[in-house]
Amino acid sequence: MSAISEADAGPTHPDQGVGPHLISIADLGASGIAEVLRVAEAFAEVERRSIPKVPTLRGKVVATLFFEESTRTRLSFETAAKRLSADVLSLAVASSSVQKGESLRDTVETVEAMGIDAIVLRHRASGAPAQVARWVRRARVLNAGDGWHEHPTQALVDCFTVRQVLAEAAGVAPASLGVSCFAGLKVLIVGDVRHSRVARSEILAYRALGAEVALCGPPSLLPSDLTGWGVSVEADLDDALGGADVVSLLRLQAERGSGTHVPSLREYTAGWGLSAVRMARLAPQAIVTHPGPMVRGVEIASDVAELPSVVVTRQVTNGVAVRMAVLFLLLGSEVALEGLGGDRG
């Protein structure tokens, strides 16, 4: 470990001042993350029922506004909302007034005028959800990924999944671990951190829970200034892997311009791809996460992606329960969690 930046120096994460919304992991803090994980366990149980649906958010309307393509996040949010019996409005930007030049602000105000309770927003511009949260009157805003900034529900899914795997290894129920299992956990985030909203949210989440976070990637793909992040930087992936409990692989974001930050995919893969040889350096119980979509042959070798310690499919499965928890906590605070009966309607 080298070049540890001081957590107490430089900028702190801005307080968005938007308590009812989920814009950043910083809105939750350690106690908020713990609460999401606790509630998500309860919903994971619901999902195992023959009719995986509860009436918790009946009458609520959730709108998904995706100004950037997405497969898993959008499906995951919409599935979560439907399992909570909320109505789902899905704005397909490609066929909407946005194509006629309508501004983000007008689109949001139009959608809100339809009486929706929550806006799930994905936007290619960092900060768009924070701006939308200032424009709405009563709707809650959930950040489903903004530019390079944050993707808070993905980080929550990753924490949930890591705890699940740790609990299985220990032979206990995940809920019994609380969040104490993260204290001192060594997390290594590998790849294009500069352009990664997943990395920014993961760093905030893992750090809030007491894990030690290290970054490893081409220096041109790391953020230019890590003051205040409380992370260390590892120069050599081969050296770093041996000490890691969790390896979070990031996608090389060619569409965000990272293609000019490295000489070639070949060179990137040689230096920072998770090959079978590198996989062998990992401790046997280490966990490998990836937010998807994976680019096999670049950040991860195809045969490595199939190994059981690579928990990508589990992350997708857990995504629904975690997003149910987030929607419940933002929209259903008047509903007692204990009242989670099956859908008897």
Partner: peptide
Amino acid sequence: EGAWSSLLGLPGIP
């Protein structure tokens, strides 16, 4: 381009 742009995920002007 600096500590704040890194944190906010906004492209920087050095």
